[in-house]
Simulated scan of single mutants.
Amino acid sequence: MTSVTSRRLRPRALLACGAGLAVTAALTLTGAAGAQAGPAAGSTTVTPAGHSFAATLNGKATFKAGSVTATCTASSSQPSADPASNRIPDAPDNHNPSGPVSSSINPPTYSGCTASIAGVTTTVTTSGTWRVSMQYGSPISATLSIPVGGFVLESKGLANCTITAAPDAPADIVATYTNGAPSTLTVANATVPVKVTGGFGCPTSAKSSVFNAVYDITDTTDPASQITVSD
């Protein structure tokens, strides 16, 4: 497993996370049975095509499950030897005329983590293949997809707890992307399904966690360029 950390991952240079971290994506609207389908997604272009990107935590990332809140002060998703990860697709695949642009990202790493429970140490690990999808709009939407069991938070000490995100199926973290210098990926009160195990002091009844974080998305191929999402 990789120590944990991605909406603009797809943009010019992208996002990642988590643990993040890393880090996001376009939303596909699915109507309930019998409901009328929503409007078709518009076009999306992420530039610069073929450039690699990094997502670096700006501030703190927090994860709240039940009465327990974990806070991490460092998180990032960085390019690696795998040329397919943390990379905007080459042209023309960096443009989608009717939907989001997606790419795989390395699991975000997380460090400097503490918990609201006194007397415990906290670690976050991530694993598997993560993805980020960007959809142009107002605002620009991003979706960070976590694989099954791809994020695990553990506390040890007075309370020995394990919080596993996406325990049974892949899960999406919905975020917004803002073009800029650098561009940012903002996760605000995103809900992610979790499974909590452990003894006294562990929020074992919690079925979801609330995630908050802001990531700077930078172009690692050309630091003078910005990762940008447009139509």
Rank of each mutant, 00 (worst) to 15 (best):
P108L: 14
A70Q: 11
F53H: 10
I88G: 03
S155D: 00
R8H: 04
D172N: 13
A169G: 03
V214W: 01
T56H: 00
D172T: 08
G31L: 02
V148P: 00
P167V: 02
D222K: 08
F63K: 03
N96M: 10
I140Q: 09
P108R: 11
L57P: 03
T176Y: 12
T73L: 06
N179K: 11
I140C: 04
P182R: 13
T218H: 00
V46T: 15
A65C: 01
A70R: 09
Q226R: 03
A142T: 06
S52Y: 05
V214T: 15
G180A: 09
A37P: 01
F63P: 00
T2R: 07
L158E: 11
Q226E: 08
L144V: 13
L29Q: 13
P203E: 10
A169D: 12
L29S: 13
A188L: 11
A35G: 10
I140F: 01
S209Q: 13
Y136A: 14
A206M: 06
P48E: 04
P79K: 04
G149C: 08
Y110E: 03
P139C: 07
C17E: 09
D219I: 05
P100H: 10
H51P: 02
T56E: 13
A61G: 08
L27N: 06
D219W: 08
A33C: 01
R8M: 02
V124S: 06
